[in-house]
Structures are given as C-alpha cells and as structure tokens.
Amino acid sequence: MNTQRFIELGEGLGDVFELCELIRTNSGRLHRAFIFTTGESGVLSLAAAFDPAGEGNFMPIYICREGIRGNGKESARVTRFREAATQAGATPIPVEVRPSKDYSDRDQYYRHITGILRLNHLIPPLR
C-alpha cells in the first residue's frame, strides 16, 4: 500500500527556499508540483509530491501551507517555486481547495486535499 502524507515546512520565505531546494536535490523523484489556491480568501500554498525512495511505499508531499497572499500578481516566492519545478521538468498544477480554517483539525484538511488529488489522478490511488 502506498502511504501519502503531507509534511509541513512552514509559511515563511525560508521555508519556500527549502521546498525549492528539496525539488532541486530530488528532481529525479519529483512526481508533481502544486499551487493550492483558496479562492475568495486569497491565500496560496506551495507543495511538491515525490515518488517513494528506493523500495519504500511512502510518498511525501511537502507543503508550505497558506503562507502567501494572492493579490493578483505573482509573488517572488511563487516565481522561485515555479522556476525550481520547471528546472526539475514539472509545471506546477493549480488546484483550488478550501482554506484550512474550514476544518476542525489539520489531518482532516490534508485528507480533503489528498482526496482531491487522487480523484483528479494527480497522485496515485492507494494500493
């Protein structure tokens, strides 16, 4: 069975740099990159899903959750993320999701996003 789990890095600029570095150093494992948007509340989350390492069944999805305000123009953090993903051969996929504040706990929020990604065949189903 594949295990897919979100790993939060944080919301700040340094966290986005770390996510970009993870993409660069693991470019061969990069499955997909995502930009989660929350519509009316206008916050963005950046995320990258990686294929399992070696013979493992663990698919990590690193995320910088809701740390970027969407104000109509692209921030430098989003531009850096796009560049890192492009250099690794991926185009970040925009996915609209509900904001995390709509959920009673973070696990429920991540289950919601995982379901959206699986239904849209953006990450593999559980086996």
Rank of each mutant, 00 (worst) to 15 (best):
T25F: 04
F50S: 04
S45H: 06
G42L: 04
S41G: 00
E40Q: 10
V16P: 04
G28V: 02
T38F: 04
A47Y: 04
F50R: 10
D51W: 06
F50N: 06
T38L: 14
L19H: 05
N26T: 05
A48W: 00
F34K: 08
I23D: 10
S45V: 03
F50C: 06
A47V: 01
G28T: 07
F17I: 09
A48T: 00
N26G: 05
T25E: 10
L44V: 03
I23Q: 13
S45Q: 09
H31Q: 13
V43S: 11
T38C: 14
H31F: 05
F34S: 10
V43C: 05
F34A: 07
S41R: 13
S27A: 04
L44I: 05
N26V: 01
A48H: 02
T25I: 15
F34V: 10
S41T: 13
L19V: 02
R24D: 14
A49Y: 10
S45F: 03
A48Y: 00
G42W: 01
L44P: 02
A48S: 05
I35E: 13
I23R: 14
G39N: 14
E18H: 07
L22T: 02
F17A: 15
A48V: 01
N26H: 07
D51T: 11
E40S: 12
T38H: 12
C20W: 02
E21S: 11
S45T: 02
A49Q: 12
F34N: 10
F34L: 08
R29K: 15
L22M: 14
A49K: 10
C20N: 11
A47C: 03
H31W: 08
E18P: 00
F50K: 10
V16K: 13
L30W: 02
R32S: 14
F34G: 08
I35Q: 08
F34I: 06
L22I: 06
L30Y: 04
R24A: 15
N26I: 01
A33W: 00
L19W: 01
R29F: 13
